[in-house]
C-alpha cells in the first residue's frame, strides 16, 4: 500500500499523542514503582548509595520486619485504620442515607435552611476548628479513642455524603415512590425497597469517598490520638521514620508506605466508575 500525505498527517499527531501520554504515565508511575521496588529490597541494598534501580535480590524481609517495628507492630495499626475507616464509612452511609432521603423527599418547615447549614460545613475545613474539637472530645471522655476519631471523620464526610444521597433520591420520580406507598409500603420500607436500589451508585460513591478520606487522614489523627497503640497507619509512618534515628531503614519505610497506599489503589481500580461519577456529580452541582 502506498502512503499518502494525508496518512502521514493523520498518523503524526497520533504518534505524538501516544508519546506524550506514555511520558506522563512514566512520570506518574515512577514514584510508585520506586515504592514497590524499594520495599522488596534487602535492608542492606535499601541503603546503598547510589541506589539500585530494581531489587537485585527479592526479599520480603522489610514486610516481615514491619510486624515488629514500633511498640506494637504494623498489624495493630492496620486494624486501627480498618476500624476507623470502616466505622466512619458505615456510619456516614447510614446517616447520609437517612438525611438524604429526608431532605429530598420528606420536606418540612426549615429543612431547606438545615440543608444549607450542613452544606456550609463544606466551606469550613476542620483544620480551622481543631482546637475546640480537641477540648470537646476531652470533655466527652473521647480523647485518645478510635471512636472519637471516627465521629470526627463522620462529621466531616457527612456534608458531601448527604449532598450526594439527596441528589440520588431527588432523581427518583415521585410517582415511583407513590406507587410503593399505594402498594402498602410504609415510608421506611418504601425507601428501603424501592428508592434505595436506585440510589445505590450514589451510596457506593459516598462509601468510597469516606473510606479513602478516613483511611488517609493525617492531621486530625496526629492531634486527637496520642497513644501509640491507637495510631492509624498514616501517623504510624512517622514512627517508622523516627524509630532508628541515624540508621533509618528506607526499605522498611517504603514497605509501610506500600501497606498504606496499596489498599487504596486496589479499591480505586476496582470501583473507579463510582468514584469518578460521584466526584463529577459533587463538583458540577
Amino acid at each position: 500500500m502506498k502512503t499518502t500525505l494525508a496518512d502521514v498527517r493523520s498518523t503524526l499527531p497520533r504518534a505524538a499523542w501516544w508519546i506524550a501520554c506514555v511520558c506522563v504515565s512514566v512520570l506518574v508511575l515512577y514514584p510508585l514503582a520506586v515504592m514497590v521496588s524499594q520495599s522488596l529490597k534487602k535492608p542492606s541494598e535499601a541503603t546503598e548509595n547510589p541506589p539500585t534501580l530494581y531489587p537485585h535480590g527479592l526479599s520480603l524481609e522489610n514486610y516481615r520486619a514491619l510486624g515488629n517495628t514500633g511498640q506494637f507492630g504494623i498489624w495493630q495499626h492496620v486494624s486501627n485504620s480498618l476500624l476507623v475507616a470502616a466505622g466512619t464509612t458505615l456510619l456516614t452511609m447510614l446517616l447520609a442515607t437517612l438525611a438524604g432521603y429526608g431532605f429530598a423527599k420528606l420536606r418540612f418547615r426549615g429543612s431547606g435552611v438545615l440543608f444549607f447549614i450542613i452544606l456550609a460545613t463544606f466551606m469550613i475545613p476542620f483544620q480551622a476548628i481543631i482546637t475546640p474539637l480537641f477540648s470537646i472530645l476531652h470533655d466527652m471522655g473521647l480523647s485518645d479513642t478510635l471512636l472519637g476519631l471516627t465521629l470526627v471523620y463522620t462529621t466531616f464526610q457527612l456534608p458531601f455524603g448527604i449532598f450526594l444521597m439527596r441528589n440520588s433520591f431527588a432523581s427518583v420520580p415521585a410517582s415511583i415512590e407513590e406507587a410503593a406507598l399505594v402498594d402498602g409500603c410504609g415510608l421506611v420500607s418504601a425507601m428501603a425497597r424501592v428508592l434505595l436500589p436506585v440510589a445505590i451508585p450514589g451510596l457506593i460513591s459516598t462509601a468510597l469517598f469516606t473510606f479513602f478520606a478516613s483511611w488517609n487522614e493525617f492531621f486530625a489523627a496526629l492531634i486527637l490520638v496520642t497513644d501509640e497503640s491507637k495510631f492509624t497507619l498514616p501517623v504510624t509512618l512517622t514512627v517508622l521514620a523516627s524509630n532508628q534515628l541515624g540508621t533509618l531503614n528506607w526499605g522498611l519505610m517504603q514497605a509501610g508506605v506500600a501497606v498504606t497506599a496499596i489498599p487504596c489503589i486496589v479499591l480505586y481500580l476496582l470501583l473507579q466508575r463510582y468514584y469518578v461519577a460521584g466526584l463529577v456529580a459533587g463538583a458540577v452541582k
Partner: peptide, 11 residues
C-alpha cells in the same frame, strides 16, 4: 493519571 490522587498525603 488519576492514580496518585487516591494515595494519602502522608504516604
Amino acid at each position: 493519571f488519576f492514580l496518585p490522587v487516591v494515595i494519602g498525603f502522608a504516604a
